[in-house]
Computed example of a mutant assay.
Amino acid sequence: MDIAALSMVMSQANVQQNAGIAVMKMAMDTGKENATQMTDMMKNVAVDTSVGQNLDTWA
């Protein structure tokens, strides 16, 4: 393999690696955003403290 072909192959591999890293960063950012939204949503949920205090049974 000559130097020019080797250079092109290495350059293409570098581009593919950089693209993969960019996609992974986007996925991580999306995951962080979803986690933040879910945490905020859970903070805003009204909690009824009387739920679960009594157990009705029938024999």
Rank of each mutant, 00 (worst) to 15 (best):
M1G: 13
D2K: 11
D2E: 10
D2C: 09
A4D: 09
A4P: 13
A5R: 13
A5Q: 10
A5C: 07
A5W: 06
A5P: 00
A5L: 12
A5M: 10
L6I: 09
L6Q: 06
L6D: 00
L6C: 04
L6R: 11
S7W: 00
S7M: 10
S7N: 08
S7E: 07
S7H: 01
M8H: 09
M8C: 06
M8D: 07
M8S: 07
V9N: 04
V9D: 04
M10Y: 12
M10G: 08
S11T: 10
S11D: 09
Q12E: 12
Q12N: 08
Q12A: 09
A13F: 03
A13V: 04
A13H: 01
A13P: 02
V15L: 03
V15A: 06
Q16H: 00
Q17G: 04
Q17N: 06
N18L: 07
A19F: 00
G20M: 01
G20A: 02
I21W: 01
A22I: 00
A22M: 00
A22W: 00
A22H: 01
V23E: 03
V23C: 03
V23P: 00
V23K: 05
V23D: 03
M24V: 03
M24Y: 04
M26Q: 03
M26K: 00
M26N: 01
M28H: 08
M28W: 09
D29K: 02
T30Q: 10
T30E: 08
T30V: 10
T30R: 09
G31C: 04
G31P: 01
K32A: 09
K32C: 06
K32R: 05
E33D: 11
E33A: 14
N34K: 15
N34H: 09
N34M: 14
N34D: 10
A35S: 03
A35C: 02
A35P: 02
T36N: 06
T36R: 10
T36H: 05
T36E: 04
T36K: 08
Q37S: 10
Q37L: 14
Q37K: 15
Q37P: 04
M38N: 13
T39Y: 14
T39I: 12
D40A: 14
D40F: 14
M41F: 15
M41R: 15
M41A: 15
K43D: 01
N44I: 08
N44M: 14
N44G: 12
N44K: 14
N44P: 03
V45L: 11
V45H: 03
A46E: 01
A46M: 04
A46R: 02
V47Y: 09
D48H: 05
D48V: 06
D48F: 07
D48A: 07
D48R: 02
T49C: 07
T49V: 13
S50V: 08
S50K: 08
G52S: 02
Q53Y: 15
Q53N: 14
Q53C: 13
Q53W: 15
N54I: 14
N54D: 13
L55N: 03
D56W: 08
D56I: 12
T57H: 06
W58S: 15
A59P: 15
A59R: 11
A59Q: 12
